[in-house]
Write a protein that binds this DNA or RNA. Sequence first.
DNA 1: GCAAGGACGTA
DNA 2: GTACGTCCTTGCA
Length: 972
Amino acid sequence: MHLLLVDGSGYIFRAFHALPPLSRKSDGLPVGCVQGFCNMLFKLTQDMDGDEAPTHMAVIFDAKGKTFRDDIYPDYKAQRPPAPEELVPQFPLTRSATRAFSIPSIEMEGWEADDIMATYAVMARQAGMKVTIASSDKDLMQLVEPDGSIRLLDTIPRPGQPPLRWIGPDEVMTKFGVSPDKVIDVQALCGDSVDNVPGVPGIGVKTAAELINAYGDLETLLSRAEEIKQPARRQKLIDNAELARISKRLVTLEQKVPVEIGLDGLVRQPMRPSALFPFLKAMEFATITKRLATLLEANPDDFEADPELKAGGSTDVGAPQKSTSLSVAKAKLAANATPGTGPARHAAEEHARVKAIPVDYDAYEIVTTPERLAAWVDKIVDTGRVSIDTETTGLDPQMADLVGICLSTAIGEGCYIPVGHALPGDLLGGGGLVEGQLPIRDVLAALKPVLEDASILKIGQNVKYDMEVLERYGIALAPIDDTMLISYALDGPRYNGMDVLADHWLEHKCISFSELAGTGKNQKTFDQLDIAAAARYAAEDADVTLRLWHVLKPRLSAENATTLYETLERPLAPVLARMEARGIMVDRQILARLSGDFAQRAAAFEAEAHELAGQSFNLGSPKQLGEILFDKMGLEGGTKTKTGAWSTGADVLEDLALKGIPLARTIVDWRQLTKLKGTYTDALPTYINPRTGRVHTSYSQASVLTGRLSSNDPNLQNIPVRTEDGRKIRSAFVAPPGKVLISADYSQIELRVLAHIADIQALKDAFEEGLDIHAMTASEMFNVPVEGMPSDVRRRAKAINFGIIYGISAFGLANQLGIERSVAGEYIKTYFERFPGIKDYMDAQRIRVKAEGHVTTLFGRKIQFPNANSGNPSERAFVERASINAPIQGSAADIIRRAMIRMEGELQRAGVDADMLLQVHDELIFEVPEGAEEAAIPVIKRVMEGAAEPAVRLSVPIQVDAHAAKNWDEAH
DNA sequence: GCAAGGACGTA
DNA sequence: GTACGTCCTTGCA
């Protein structure tokens, strides 16, 4: 008989660095260790067949919480850093994997896995069984028996070594220099820095082994310490005898853990396809699924992926918004977020702990020597985690130069490494660097290994910025966590910005940049600041970022936002960083010509307007215009804005124009031209980066309520398209010679999402059949055949469809269509009758937002409405409309995010050379070599159309149209 | 020099 | 009727 014990927790921690990182394809969930673990279980059961085959088996895990060792020595394992972020979701998954393989998964509160394994090993040996412990943990070496009855088996994959390696008495001798029964005596002397076992200071493994071999055991050694010849060693042993005894108790494994399951309960069970395949499918492990299918002679297709574990499964991602799920959602809310239950309590405790630690500016360090820099690098390696912020000469990550880097590895600490502070320059330029700074090359060379180390987490606030800056200095920052994105995943864009986050969560007011550098045109750039003052500001940033991370990160699991963050937020940041870095080419000449054209035509309109008004006035002033139209000319039907000024919006002027006021038309035309000139033809060329010759927008990933991106500096998401003049501007966005642009856009994505979420059969059928959706709507509403339908009928239906998405009101629809409110009300009534389901959906959102303060997208993104129960009726009505729109707009936004996250990898896998440049809500713009568009378009369409899956299986087809051309206007 | 309001470009 | 960002004027400091 043979008992096989697997050290589950040990495997996860040790395999993490040995295995290549692996993400679940459909949503990016890290699963590398889970896969390694499954492979290991498979291998163990395969390789140990015949006489070696285990008859009994269990996987043992560490339970959460304290053990008796914490009572003996409070600092035990105290300095061990929290598990790397990528590991956290894998802990529960390895337990699920164990169960999937039909193996007992054992963990006991108050005991470490090692103690449980020791207990079972001894029990089994006494019962005459052979024991194998699958672990390479040196603490378990004390259990090895010289007769081979208890052995260890190292299963951590290592390149160039066999997958399974035995550890017997010889290997223990190599490691500790003693036989297994003396291992604990050696450990008692040499201690263990990882677990914080003190040992005797100054005594290492070699000396310890020498002493134990000479004196036999620890107690004999301590009682005869006086005899030791070396005076320093003798004194150390005498002084620290008690520390050695405590250390021995810490490292000695308990062999009498009161296990609930006896050896009989560990008898090996055959693997069951019904347990195995739902798990493997949910993890999307194709290879091992295939191998086990062959082994078990089963067909995996007979089984569905475990709904609790699969991407977008119900454990974390919010339940789809069917009205019946309201009570379920409430129950989940209560179960997960009540203070006092595990994760929520932990988050609250962390918050209280971190908030209580005051910020101490004097604790910050300015790093100016190679030694101190090396010390900080060591610190980062030790903790496996660092918060980082880069200070630069400006706000544009594609232009700004690096001035300094700040780091923090522990709350209350921080350092600033100045590298680019400049002496005051003259008109001709800079006056060189301030003395005392380390050379930037040396600093970057020293930091590069840790900043790129896959096992060291880099924490930042708006990390995308730092990634772009550092990329230009040859550093690929990864892996990352972003406090801004964590906050966004939890609370939406409410507390954007580090100062606001610090104020809200830490009740700490950060030094503001303006109090350091001034404001306005005399504002200093960071390189002109005094290093000492800059250091306080900069190191505070790193310190505060780390504090925020400690406060916010635990809330992700407590509030079920981990999947959202890890699949829809964090992986998008590096994608956006690359898009921003690529930029897009803009033809300066086209814009210059247009600008001249627009200027001339605008001037003509201006003269005409002055003529018609009978006086000169500023056409750009709505105030002056209103006074001329409604006071001086005395026109009827003017309305006032909420501030009491005359309303002169385009719709008002359009009305006046129809009533025969030519001035109104002239103003409308003038405004259009000056808008295009001011915002686009004149402004865009100023954004061309001299280094790259291209325009680099900046995407904000965390500022839109619904989960959309926004674009600024410049905004490339509102480049004109609707008018002929506008499209001329769009045609100035071009591909460089030898390349073409591809524009791929989702067709009617929001209406399709609506059809799915609200479960509207008629809409779903129409999309299934590929009908013109607005014409179909018109035909249903107004009983007009689609064939030969008047364009106005279709236009009305289109307005209604959009109205539904926007949370329709009779008032708004009437306004839009220029019809009576009562007529608009009738339209809406008819719509609800023809498309049953819409009204239910809308009511469900209204109820939900009032009851819970938020609504959710298909992918679990919460959209908060803090004033859903406002006393102000118009505010309430506004929230109702927004809460109807938000799941639709937000689900569509989540879908294109998923497409973007997958896109680069899929293009690469397909061997297609294509660069993703821009996103405009439902459209992606790529740049590809001429001739590659034929290959690129099918890949792009496939990724975009399949982006929701497998997290969500939409009940409507998703359609993407893609075209290639030399400029954006023609590609669109 | 700055903030607010109005207007208008996009999905 | 939803969601944004930018430009310009205005009014106040």
